[in-house]
């Protein structure tokens, strides 16, 4: 009995003492933080992907509170919905934004682009790209080691084992831009998602002369200029032996897709006109 009393008293005393110490420590070392930061953090996706340019969601929330020009703040993951909530907390106006998506601009599948050597280094595009041009004759195309897949926090980009190219999952891609930064070949681009996810883009980044790029890959852009001529909206430019479609000017008329001799221009999510030869 005595033992129990002593135990209760000692433990109780230790507990009480600790509580007092903790209480004063919490008071003394408390860091003041704008309450709105916590509120904003609450509505953010908490993915800490860094897509906004800040190191994590907490930093973004801080930046939002501090920002003089709120229109520059944007969470690509949460999109307009989240930003309007953030704006409401801060009593500011959220700007209109267009949904974006990551687009892989290389169609050099194993069938289209023959492998000319065997890469046997560490499985990392960054390592391979620092070493050499890649395991095909195209030194611009996808290396297939999947740095973009590793970089994606949303499981929205996967390697297709057959084509050895990454594929973006439309539903889960948040256009945070992590894969864009991870790709050492700058193949992935954030483009306008488009109405009903319909988009047209040049699926090639090869800047070699036409003959060289064609030799390396069947579906490369050879910069023949047909698409540039056929485009009525001045959306296509050819620079450094490579065509590029400005997604802000493109009206999705698909004329360029039809004239492209190599099939380098790709259309996505359009209702099929004819049976596509894949």
């Amino acid at each position: 009995m005595n033992l129990i009393v002593i135990a209760v008293i000692t433990l109780g005393a230790i507990g009480a003492l600790s509580a007092v110490v903790l209480y004063f420590a919490a008071k003394k070392f408390a860091v003041f933080e704008d309450l709105r930061i916590a509120q904003i953090e609450e509505v953010l996706p908490a993915a800490n992907c860094g897509g906004c340019g800040n190191p994590g969601c907490h930093a973004f929330a801080e930046a939002c509170v501090k920002a003089e020009d709120f229109s520059k703040m944007y969470c690509p993951v949460g999109g307009a919905a989240v930003m309007s909530k953030v704006a409401a907390i801060l009593g500011k106006e959220a700007k209109e934004t267009v949904p974006m998506i990551a687009v892989v601009r290389c169609n050099g599948t194993c069938a289209h682009r023959p492998r000319t050597n065997i890469y046997d280094g560490a499985t990392s595009c960054a390592v391979a790209s620092a070493l050499y041009g890649g395991d095909t004759d195209c030194s611009y195309g996808c290396l297939g080691c999947g740095d973009c897949v590793v970089a994606c926090k949303f499981d929205a980009i996967h390697m297709n084992a057959e084509t050895r190219l990454p594929e973006v999952v439309e539903e889960t891609c948040t256009a945070c831009g992590a894969c864009v930064k991870a790709c050492p070949k700058s193949i992935i681009e954030l483009r306008k998602k488009g109405p009903k996810s319909r988009r047209i883009f040049v699926s090639c980044v090869n800047k070699d002369k036409g003959a060289l790029s064609r030799k390396a890959c069947e579906v490369s852009c050879i910069a023949c200029g047909k698409c540039e001529k056929v485009c009525e909206f001045d959306a296509i430019t050819i620079e450094n032996n490579l065509a590029y479609i400005d997604y802000n000017k493109c009206r999705l008329c698909r004329k360029c897709v039809e004239v492209c001799p190599t099939g380098a221009i790709q259309e996505l999510n359009f209702p099929s006109k004819k049976v596509e030869n894949n």
């Binding site: 050597n117 065997i118 070493l131 395991d135």
Partner: peptide, 10 residues
């Protein structure tokens, strides 16, 4: 090129 060369870093 049936006999492809192996490429790896040193």
């Amino acid at each position: 090129m049936e006999n492809k060369l192996v490429i790896s870093p040193s």
